[in-house]
Structure formats: structure tokens, C-alpha cells
């Protein structure tokens, strides 16, 4: 690359993070500066969400003379998004978050991350991730926990933080399990606890849950950076500071850290290929079906681009994809999963 139609063109890198609740995208220049950012709800439709964030990114990149030369995807829909965008890099969210955070806070020793349905802790020493853990059993201690309780109380989750900070005496909420927390919360409301105190109690419950599960047995040292959607909740940040006794930093782009990290990984991978925002106009479809060839009953998913198989996964053996493709009458699978 270098010039296009006589104009000077600079290289840019796209990172897309499609999570259970929200979809994030950033475009970076080669120095790692953010050229464009977008944050939208996934709403159970990752393909549409990706197209929507692309539209926002395109608008911001337009006119800067930057051209996307590499794409990285992460988050729970990273494989699907990677296939659709022809990504150079498909990375797990833990690595992406670590890389993103380290690019901004090189001295960080502990990264807390609480997203919509999962939460993780990454321990960093001397600029290198040395240990991590992710919630395994249950979503109590994630963003979903807060938003389901918000619905119950009737306070928008975005306002939770301010309510919590107003509280003088946080209510104790049994936060081990989302369902039981809700019954405890209803009970506390019925016996007259103030909404502020209950919300502060919820923030404490989520932090207690996080530290007792994900953070169990880890050496939590400052500087601590807290990110993921829940980091925007000042009540939870405050609860973390109380519980750990350290200052807890929240980056202004904390909710974008996964996409930022994977854009950097894509940049450093060295792989480049032309990318066009016109991918937004292409019809993508996913079809899922049980293979049925053996008792394993693999749920095979095929990604179709304009009716042709682009990628697929979920099969334990090569027969699975062929069987499903044949049955659905779509053209033969040529690409195998990128893993």
C-alpha cells in the first residue's frame, strides 16, 4: 500500500469485540492511537451488531485518509465475526484484554474485568500476564446480575453508580446466586431498606462474589485497572476500592479494551489484506443443525455468505459439516474452521 489514487493513505487496524451483551469496535493508526470507536448492544444478533458498529467506525474513519489493512476479532462471537470480516487474527478475550490494557497502563499488576456474562482477573507482573482466572460456574458477579436486579428495582442500571454513592449504610444482600439474591433483595425492600442502600448492597455483593470466586487465591497488587461494561458503574468501583484497600483505575476506553487489544494483535501479526466496509451490504446467514450421524449429536453451525458456505464449526469429525451442508442443499464446504 502507500498511495491510492494519488492520495497519501495511512494504515489502520480494526478490532471488533462481540460480547454477549455489547459489541465494540475500534480503529487504530499504526501508532496505536484511536481513530474511531463504537459501542452498541448485541441484542442477540451478532451479525447485525457487527454491521452497525462498522457503520459507525466507517463514518469516523472517513476523510482521515486511513485505510483498514488488518482486522482482529475477539469476544464470544469472535469466530463468526472473524469469518465474516475475513479477520487476520481471531483471539480469545483474555489475551485481547491483557494486550489492550498493557498498551495503556504498562505498570498494571492486576486487571479486573466484568462483562455482561463473564468476569475475569488477569495478574500481570513486569508487564507480562502471569496468571488469570475466569468465572466458571455462574453469572452471579457479572453485569447480567446487576441488570436483572435493576429491572426488579425499577432503576436504570446506568444510574446505579450514583445511587450507590449516596448510600450511607449498604444493605447486606446474599449474592451467592442471582436468583436467591433477587429474593433477598425483595425481602430487604419489603422490610423498608432504602433503594440507595439496596443498590450499594448489590455493588458490594458483586464485588464480594468476584473476589471470592474469580479472585480466589490470587495476589491482588496495585496498580489495579478495572474494565468491562460494569467498570462504568462508580458504585462497583467504590466497592472494589473498599474491599481491596487500593485505588482502582478505570480507563475512559475501559469498555473498549478487548477490541483495542485485538486491533493491536492484528497490527503486530504482520498479516495484511484489503478490507472494505462494503461487507456491510453482504447478506450473511448462519444455519445450525444437529448432524445426527452418530450419538454425539454435534450441533453444526454453517456461516453462509450470499447462500454459499463461508465457514462452519461445532463438528467433532469432518463428516459433520458435509452432512449438514448436503442436507441443507448448500454448496460444499471448502473452508474449515480457523479454531
Amino acid at each position: 500500500m502507500g498511495s491510492w489514487k494519488g492520495e497519501r493513505v495511512s494504515k489502520a487496524y480494526l478490532g471488533v469485540d462481540v460480547g454477549s451483551i455489547s459489541t465494540k469496535a475500534v480503529a487504530l493508526d499504526s501508532g496505536g492511537e484511536v481513530l474511531a470507536r463504537s459501542y452498541l448492544w448485541t441484542e442477540g444478533n451478532p451479525v447485525r451488531a457487527v454491521k452497525n458498529v462498522l457503520a459507525e467506525v466507517e463514518e469516523q474513519v472517513d476523510g482521515t485518509g486511513a485505510e483498514i489493512v488488518a482486522v482482529g476479532t475477539t469476544g464470544s462471537a469472535r469466530q463468526l465475526t472473524g469469518a465474516i470480516l475475513g479477520a487476520q487474527v481471531v483471539k480469545n478475550e483474555i489475551t485481547s484484554h491483557a494486550v489492550g490494557t498493557l498498551s495503556r497502563h504498562s505498570d498494571v499488576q492486576t486487571i479486573f474485568e466484568i462483562g455482561g456474562q463473564d468476569s475475569k482477573i488477569i495478574i500481570v507482573r513486569d508487564g507480562v500476564p502471569v496468571d488469570y482466572a475466569m468465572n466458571t460456574l455462574c453469572a452471579a458477579g457479572t453485569g447480567s446480575f446487576l441488570s436483572s436486579q435493576a429491572r426488579r428495582i425499577g432503576v436504570p442500571v446506568e444510574e446505579f453508580g450514583e445511587y450507590a454513592l449516596r448510600s450511607k449504610r449498604a444493605t447486606k444482600i446474599a449474592g451467592r446466586c442471582t436468583v436467591f439474591a433477587e429474593s433477598d433483595l425483595v425481602h430487604k425492600a419489603q422490610i423498608g431498606h432504602a433503594v440507595e442502600d439496596i443498590i450499594a448492597g448489590l455493588c458490594n455483593a458483586i464485588v464480594g462474589n468476584y473476589l471470592n470466586n474469580v479472585g480466589k487465591g490470587k495476589e491482588i497488587l496495585a496498580p489495579i485497572v478495572f474494565q468491562g461494561g460494569v467498570s462504568k458503574n462508580v458504585g462497583v468501583v467504590h466497592a472494589f476500592e473498599q474491599a481491596t484497600g487500593h485505588e482502582v483505575m478505570v480507563d475512559e476506553d475501559g469498555h473498549l479494551m478487548g477490541s483495542l487489544g485485538v486491533a493491536l494483535v492484528a497490527r503486530d501479526s504482520g498479516g495484511e489484506a484489503p478490507f472494505s466496509f462494503a461487507v456491510r451490504d453482504v447478506a450473511f446467514e448462519t444455519v445450525g443443525e444437529e448432524c445426527g450421524g452418530c450419538p454425539n449429536e454435534c450441533e453444526v453451525v454453517l456461516v453462509l455468505r450470499e447462500g454459499e458456505v463461508l465457514d462452519g464449526w461445532g463438528n467433532r469429525c469432518p463428516r459433520g459439516m458435509e452432512r449438514v451442508a448436503e442436507r441443507l442443499g448448500v454448496s460444499k464446504v471448502t473452508v474449515t474452521s480457523a479454531g
Binding site: K91, N92, I94, T95, D131, Y132, M134
Partner: peptide, 8 residues
């Protein structure tokens, strides 16, 4: 988890 572990 395996991906992240190997990356780390």
C-alpha cells in the same frame, strides 16, 4: 481458557 493459557 486454553487459548488464553497458551498465549499467556
Amino acid at each position: 481458557r486454553l487459548d488464553a493459557f497458551c498465549d499467556m
